[in-house]
Computed example of a mutant assay.
Amino acid sequence: MDDLHRPQFAHLIDINGQNQTIHIPFEHDDFFSQIKQFTELYLTGKSQSSIMPLTDSLACAQILDQIKAKI
């Protein structure tokens, strides 16, 4: 897969051993889904996402802090 952060296609080998390329068009910028999720939560009065709950966000922040401390 080229461009792991924002792939547009992937090269695969199917179960018959044939090479395939799957095209994945880029439709939105990187923050689109986060902004959409936030808007939906805000409009429905929810304070936390089931997709990325607060505990997961805090865990990511702690991992980043640990990485930053080692740099």
Rank of each mutant, 00 (worst) to 15 (best):
Ala61Ile: 09
Ile15Phe: 11
Gln48Asn: 15
Lys36Arg: 01
Ser47Asn: 14
Ser50Ala: 14
Phe31Ala: 10
Leu4Gln: 05
Leu43Tyr: 02
Gln8Thr: 09
Gln48Asp: 15
Tyr42Asp: 06
Gln37Asp: 06
Ala61Pro: 13
Gln18Asp: 14
Ile24Cys: 11
Ile22Phe: 04
Gln66Ala: 01
His5Pro: 04
Ser33Thr: 06
Asp65Ile: 04
Arg6Leu: 03
Pro25Cys: 08
Ser57Arg: 14
Leu41Pro: 02
Thr21Leu: 02
Leu54Ile: 15
Asp29His: 00
Gln66Glu: 08
Leu58Trp: 13
His28Asp: 10
Pro25Met: 04
Glu40Lys: 03
Thr21Ser: 02
Ile35Phe: 06
Asp30Ala: 05
Asp29Tyr: 00
His28Cys: 04
Ser50Phe: 12
Gln34Ile: 10
Leu54Val: 15
Asn16Phe: 05
Asp30Asn: 01
Pro25Gln: 08
Gln18Lys: 13
Ile35Tyr: 03
Leu12Gly: 00
Ser50Ile: 12
Ile24Val: 09
Ile24Phe: 07
Ile51Lys: 10
Cys60Leu: 15
Leu64Ile: 13
Asp14Phe: 02
Thr39Arg: 00
Asp3Ala: 00
Asn19Glu: 13
Ser33Asn: 08
Lys70Asp: 09
Ala59Glu: 12
Asp2Gly: 07
Gln18Ser: 13
Asn16His: 11
Thr21Val: 04
Phe26Cys: 08
His5Lys: 04
Asp29Glu: 01
Thr55Lys: 14
Gln18Pro: 08
Thr44Lys: 12
Ala61Lys: 14
Leu54Phe: 15
His23Asn: 13
Pro53Ile: 09
Phe26Ile: 08
Thr55Asn: 14
Asp56Gln: 15
Gln20Met: 06
Leu12Asp: 13
Lys36Asn: 04
His28Trp: 04
Cys60His: 15
Asp30Cys: 07
His28Glu: 05
Thr44Tyr: 12
Ser57Phe: 11
His11Tyr: 09
Ile22Glu: 13
Lys36Gly: 00
Pro53Ala: 13
Leu4Ile: 04
His11Trp: 06
Ala59Thr: 13
Lys46Gln: 13
Phe31Val: 09
Gln18Met: 10
Ile67Val: 03
Arg6Asp: 01
Gln48Ile: 14
Gln62Leu: 09
Gln48Ser: 15
Pro25Trp: 02
Lys68Ile: 11
Pro25Leu: 04
Ser49Pro: 09
Ala61His: 12
Asp2Ile: 06
Gln62Trp: 09
Cys60Trp: 12
Ser47Leu: 15
Gly17Val: 02
Gln8Tyr: 08
Asn16Trp: 11
Phe26Gly: 01
Ile67Ser: 06
Gln34Met: 10
Asn19Lys: 12
Leu43Trp: 06
Ile15Gly: 10
Ile71Arg: 10
Met52His: 12
Cys60Ile: 14
Leu41Lys: 02
Ile63Glu: 06
Pro53Val: 11
Leu43Val: 09
Leu4Lys: 06
Ala69Trp: 00
Asn19Trp: 07
Ser49Gly: 02
Ile63Arg: 10
Asn19Phe: 10
Ser33Ile: 08
Leu41Thr: 00
Phe32Arg: 03
Gln8Asn: 05
Pro25Phe: 03
Leu4Ala: 07
His23Glu: 11
Tyr42Arg: 00
Thr44Trp: 06
Met52Pro: 08
Ser50Tyr: 10
Leu54Gly: 12
Leu12Pro: 01
